[in-house]
């Protein structure tokens, strides 16, 4: 981890906002903080634990011209923020709440989602959740969760949005309420997301997720991918003939994308 990045962020967030780094990607560094940027009274979860917040920071890239770099960072920060705000307005889609947007410093504040899974199974993203169920891989909770995953992607695509990086780490599960075993499924990281009507973009989203499931959970991936597509199809099938036609188009392109992928791996 780069101390320089932490120092830069601390400098403009001020030491009043404690930060803890949880991830570093090519594009962004993600921190958690116990501070809310503007609420006067602290927020608590259903168990009475104080909430924490996500700060997603896009550091300057030294190899770019500073002015171009600032414009790009502003553009990307705003693009992700706009997507999150548009998606929230669509009924049924679950994305993190946008708390603050600071385009001048390349910073987004988001609601923190998820929790630590029991038995040291890690953070509750889809990937870790499936590993945590490896001894009973086809149980009801796994099935209903994967159908809900498919429904989230279906809602996204049906409304002509694409994710752009649909891995099983970018799907986060949060408890519906503290009593039940059921999970609510959230899509996170819209850094590469876009509004798109193109079946190609949708086919690629589905393919990326299918590959992610196959590569990490290969023994069970057929069933898992089937459940995801079941949930995905449910959304389209609710919209009559028009929905069914659109569904066919997307699934057809999905299988074309898969074929192209196979060819590429056979040659390469």
């Amino acid at each position: 981890m780069s101390q320089e990045i932490v120092d830069t962020v601390t400098k403009y967030l001020t030491p009043n906002i404690p930060i803890k780094q949880i991830s570093q990607g090519a594009e962004a560094v993600v921190f958690t903080s116990s501070a809310h940027p503007y609420l006067p009274t602290p927020e608590h979860d259903a168990d009475g634990k104080p909430l924490q917040y996500i700060i997603k920071y896009r550091p300057p890239k030294k190899y770019r011209h500073p002015i171009i770099d600032r414009q790009l960072t502003k553009h990307r920060t705003l693009s992700e923020a706009r997507l999150l705000s548009k998606l929230f307005l669509i009924g049924g889609i679950n994305v993190p709440k946008l708390i603050a947007t600071d385009p001048y410093n390349g910073c987004l504040w988001l609601e923190f989602l998820g929790e630590d899974l029991p038995n040291n199974s890690g953070f509750s993203n889809l990937k870790n959740f499936l590993w945590a169920n490896v001894n009973d891989p086809y149980n009801d909770v796994v099935k209903s969760t994967l159908i809900k995953v498919g429904e989230q992607i279906g809602l996204l695509h049906f409304n002509d949005f694409c994710h752009g990086d649909l891995t099983s780490s970018n799907i986060v599960l949060a408890r519906d309420d503290t009593q039940s075993n059921d999970w609510k499924v959230f899509l996170i990281d819209f850094g590469l997301g876009s509004m798109s009507k193109l079946v190609e973009d949708k086919g690629v989203d589905l393919y990326v997720l299918e590959r992610a499931i196959i590569s990490t959970h290969s023994a069970f991936s057929d069933k898992y991918n089937e459940w995801i597509i079941e949930g995905f199809s449910n959304v389209y099938n609710k919209h009559g003939k028009g929905g069914e036609t659109k569904l066919k188009e997307v699934l057809k392109r999905f299988s074309d994308v898969r074929m192209r992928g196979r060819k590429r791996t056979m040659i390469g």
Partner: peptide, 22 residues
């Protein structure tokens, strides 16, 4: 839009906070 149904104040508020930020 009418298609956005804010069933509670916290959903309504969230939509406003988004608009204010952007």
């Amino acid at each position: 839009d009418k298609s956005f149904q804010s069933n509670n104040t916290s959903d309504l508020s969230r939509a406003l906070v988004d608009a204010i930020q952007l």
